[in-house]
């Protein structure tokens, strides 16, 4: 990747180049065969080997990222109900959101298998931090719809009744280190780098 230096600053509506020279990237739009900027930021031209260079306008704060369909989000469970769990979306990918959004995880979207035997109370509790994926932007009545029906999705941080942070033991249980009580949760698969294998 080759970056053009020094980066110049541009304003919305400024004509950057013609469509024959570069492909439009983030923060740009095309009109009349030219690429215009739609943000005020720095012009960045990236050319991968052989492919047409892509011109985009960069502002370092990506806080206007909105949860999009298929994005992995990190959220906190606000309340539960026998049919669904209400969550507050705080991160999209790795970027923290300035304004939180509300989401819903329905009972049938918690697990991939045995969907009808799921009990929400045994999968999530209020206060848990959950990694989920967006399946729909929702309509007028509902919020964002999320799913945890994959091995990598589910509860990552949870607190036991005693107040300590629990340790995951299996895909459906977490144990409190103080009282050694096991609590049922829909646990996300722990990333291999965090596993401490003792022989």
């Amino acid at each position: 990747m080759v970056l053009m230096a020094p980066a110049r600053c541009c304003v919305p509506g400024e004509r950057l180049c013609s469509l024959e020279d570069c492909a439009p990237g983030y923060g740009t739009y095309c009109k009349h065969g030219y690429v215009f900027s739609s943000l005020s930021g720095y012009v960045v031209k990236r050319s991968d080997n052989g492919m047409m260079p892509v011109i985009s306008v960069v502002r370092d704060t990506d806080s206007h990222l909105l949860p999009d369909v298929g994005a992995t989000v990190t959220c906190k469970v606000m309340s539960i109900n026998p049919r669904f769990a209400k969550v507050q979306i705080m991160y999209v990918g790795a970027t923290v959101l300035k304004n939180t959004f509300r989401g819903t995880i329905r009972k049938e979207d918690i697990r991939a298998t045995e969907k009808d035997k799921v009990e929400v109370y045994k999968s999530f509790r209020p206060g848990d931090v959950v990694v989920a994926k967006v399946i729909s932007l929702g309509d007028a009545q509902s919020n964002y719809l999320l799913t945890t029906a994959e091995n990598e999705l589910g509860v990552v941080v949870a607190h036991s009744e005693a107040g300590a942070t629990m340790v995951p033991i299996s895909w459906c249980e977490m144990q409190c280190p103080k009282t050694h009580i096991k609590e049922p949760r829909k646990v996300a698969r722990v990333q291999p780098e965090f596993l401490n294998v003792t022989t």
């Binding site: 990747m1 080759v2 970056l3 230096a5 020094p6 980066a7 600053c9 541009c10 304003v11 005020s40 930021g41 720095y42 960045v44 960069v58 502002r59 370092d60 704060t61």
Partner: peptide, 21 residues
């Protein structure tokens, strides 16, 4: 308006560092 916007952007956001790779 253009000039003041450019000044504000330069103040708010640091210029992207040239990368190589």
């Amino acid at each position: 308006l253009q000039q003041s916007l450019v000044k504000a952007t330069k103040r708010k956001i640091p210029a992207p560092q040239p990368q190589s790779g």
